[in-house]
């Protein structure tokens, strides 16, 4: 299984650093406004280098979700059943995450969610989502 530390690289380090400060940030293209996710070295929409790390609202909606009843890696065995969702952020990117603070069978497509920052070790915080109480 890939630990978050293996996902930290030249392009993504600032994403993880921001999460540690309880902030969701992604590179945004100053030329065309595109938000980069996955994060890469230039704007994937117009190839511009003019990228600027920009905070996002952390709000979005559940695009699709699944519930694992089988652990494909031992570290998830005691979490079963757990959900994995694609959250469509209001700014556009679709991101893989978990929806927390709600029973799996109460999750719905289109449900409004908000970012929750979950520290997993001293150097990494994961971005999860909970139902948006303000929606």
């Amino acid at each position: 299984m890939q630990e978050p530390r293996q996902l930290r690289n030249k392009y993504t380090a600032r994403f993880w650093d921001a999460l540690q400060q309880n902030r969701l940030m992604l590179p945004r293209c100053r030329d065309c406004g595109h938000w980069l996710f996955p994060i890469g070295p230039c704007c994937s929409n117009c190839l511009s280098d003019a990228l600027e790390w920009t905070p996002l609202s952390g709000k979005g909606e559940v695009w699709s979700f699944i519930v694992y009843h089988h652990a494909f890696a031992p570290e998830f065995k005691d979490k079963l059943p757990y959900n994995v969702a694609i959250v469509k952020l209001d700014e556009g990117p679709r991101i893989i995450s978990n929806v927390v603070g709600i029973a799996n069978d109460e999750i719905r497509n289109g449900m409004r969610v908000a970012a929750q920052f979950d520290p997993v070790d001293e150097a990494h915080t994961l971005l999860r989502f909970r139902p948006d109480a303000t929606a």
Partner: peptide
């Protein structure tokens, strides 16, 4: 057990059945 998406591994998004399930749910 390879992740369906490298960014998804810490969330337990493992095995190609993950993507397939998201597709069918959608």
């Amino acid at each position: 057990h390879r992740a369906s998406d490298p960014f998804g591994a810490p969330y337990g998004f493992l095995n190609p059945a993950g993507f397939a399930g998201l597709g069918y749910q959608r």
